[in-house]
Amino acid sequence: MENRLKWAHFLGYFLLWGCAVLMSVQGIALLTGASYRIQAVDVNELYAKYPACQIIDYSYAVIMISLAVFEIYTAISIIRYKQKAGLFVCAIYILWPLASILYLICLSIIGGRIIFDQGIIIRVIYDMVMFFVNWIYFNSRKDVFIN
């Protein structure tokens, strides 16, 4: 039985917590403008030139922090063997790329140039693969996640 749950334990005790921390840090960096200072961009100049960018950044930051909270909730659901844990994991692998793509589309519209790169394509492919892997994994373990 324990071998059947190694992936769930990895998700619940490590991966989702780590991702939640990283997403929170990224969200706070967007809220404070630190993500632009790292790139040597004056955030005040950027927001003066593109005021809508600030609204988009703040909105995306709130989405990222909300996703981080959802990841923690999902990790706890896995640890407690909740029935909806697998659904929550799959939702995360849908919401991450959707939020990122929406953010990049908004920035592309504001900036007047497309800012998509191969990294976002790889991420979307990865997230789709992980969605299906987790869907299959959790559906085959419905007998364990019953709380």
Rank of each mutant, 00 (worst) to 15 (best):
M1L: 12
M1V: 09
E2K: 13
E2I: 09
N3C: 08
N3M: 10
R4A: 15
R4W: 05
W7D: 08
A8P: 01
A8T: 00
A8V: 01
H9R: 13
F10N: 15
G12E: 11
G12D: 09
Y13P: 08
Y13Q: 15
F14D: 14
F14Q: 11
L15W: 06
L15C: 03
L16D: 02
W17P: 12
W17N: 11
W17D: 14
C19Q: 07
C19M: 12
A20N: 04
M23T: 01
S24F: 05
V25F: 08
G27Y: 00
I28F: 09
I28S: 08
A29R: 11
L30I: 01
L31F: 05
T32I: 03
G33V: 00
Y36L: 06
R37L: 11
R37E: 15
R37I: 04
I38Q: 12
Q39D: 14
Q39E: 12
V41K: 12
D42A: 04
N44A: 13
E45H: 15
E45C: 10
L46K: 00
Y47V: 03
A48V: 02
K49M: 05
K49V: 06
C53T: 10
C53I: 10
I55K: 10
I56M: 08
I56V: 11
I56H: 00
D57C: 07
D57F: 02
Y58A: 13
Y58D: 09
S59E: 07
S59N: 09
V62D: 03
S66Y: 14
L67H: 02
A68Q: 01
Y73R: 15
A75R: 09
I76T: 09
I76L: 15
S77R: 14
I79S: 02
R80L: 08
R80A: 06
K82G: 03
Q83L: 12
Q83N: 15
K84E: 10
K84F: 12
K84A: 08
K84M: 14
A85G: 02
A85F: 04
G86H: 05
F88I: 00
C90T: 04
C90P: 10
A91F: 09
A91R: 04
I94Y: 07
I94W: 13
W96K: 03
P97K: 00
L98K: 04
A99G: 07
A99L: 03
A99W: 07
S100L: 12
I101S: 07
Y103W: 12
I105V: 13
C106K: 06
L107H: 07
S108H: 04
I109C: 11
I109W: 12
I109D: 13
G111I: 01
R113H: 15
I114P: 11
I115G: 15
I115Y: 13
F116C: 10
D117I: 13
G119M: 06
G119P: 07
I120L: 08
I120T: 14
I121L: 13
I122E: 14
R123Q: 15
I125C: 06
Y126P: 02
Y126G: 07
D127Y: 03
M130R: 10
F131G: 01
V133K: 06
V133Y: 07
W135F: 15
W135G: 04
I136V: 14
I136W: 11
I136S: 10
D143F: 05
V144W: 06
F145M: 01
I146A: 09
I146V: 11
N147K: 14
